[in-house]
Write a protein that binds this DNA or RNA. Structure first.
Lengths: 114, 114
DNA sequence: CGGGTATATACCTATTAAGGTATATAAAGC
DNA sequence: GCTTTATATACCTTAATAGGTATATACCCG
């Protein structure tokens, strides 16, 4: 499966997701609320749907797209490992302790090249 | 500036950042801890540095790379708009209320094509 | 059924970006 | 000074992807 990040790398897709964050929308709605052409919107929605970021329901000729949060949660989860860098003050201690135990002896002879 | 997401789209770069999350490392350290070639590591570090995700200090021939959290915080901030989808139960109410006020009248005549 | 509306897709082209190999730069230490 | 170590960069080739235009599909309504 495509990584969540590679899907989100595309600015138009992020814009679409931001719009869908507030409520579901049709392709036409999205066309009006972005500067994108209709085929472009449809193609991005296809990518987002295949990747599990959105789902659609049929309303006559329209397709109503809405957000599916799981893939975005993945990103949130990946970020967890870095959050102590900005979350709380106490965590500065954690980082300090880790520096005490780095993988770099920082002096003396070195490893060898293959 | 390149979007944080496009930088993170590359799996090797995410791996490098994950390693740096625990402590700073030299290029050689990273080479040993990943399956990447040295030029590949250097090139990814270059991208990460230019994008502000890491910084380096000189230690003789070595360069010691460490994390700079700001760009990752950007991602965290962008995610904020979606967090109510998975954070608390109360937020389900929010979403429900928004659905009451969608941009789709969902019946009757339509807009015109240019 | 026919015309207009809504969305999806095919095809083409251009750009970007990644990996590989080779090489350049620079410092270490004898 | 020469050799080894550490990292950066150049060049090449290949693959992925985005946007555009044109067209297909499907539904609505009179």
């Amino acid at each position: 499966m495509e990584s969540a990040f590679s899907i989100l790398a595309e600015p138009s897709r992020r814009a679409i997701l931001s719009l869908l964050a507030s409520s579901e929308r049709s392709v036409g709605d999205l066309e009006l609320e972005t500067h994108l052409s209709q085929p472009s919107i449809s193609k991005h929605l296809r990518v987002l749907r295949d990747a599990g970021f959105v789902e659609a329901t049929v309303d006559a000729q329209r397709r109503l797209y809405r957000l599916k949060p799981q893939r975005l949660q993945e990103v949130d989860a990946w970020l967890a490992q870095f959050r102590r860098y900005w979350s709380a003050r106490v965590d500065a201690l954690e980082r300090h302790l880790e520096r005490m135990d780095e993988p770099n002896p920082r002096k003396k002879k070195t490893r060898k090249r293959k």
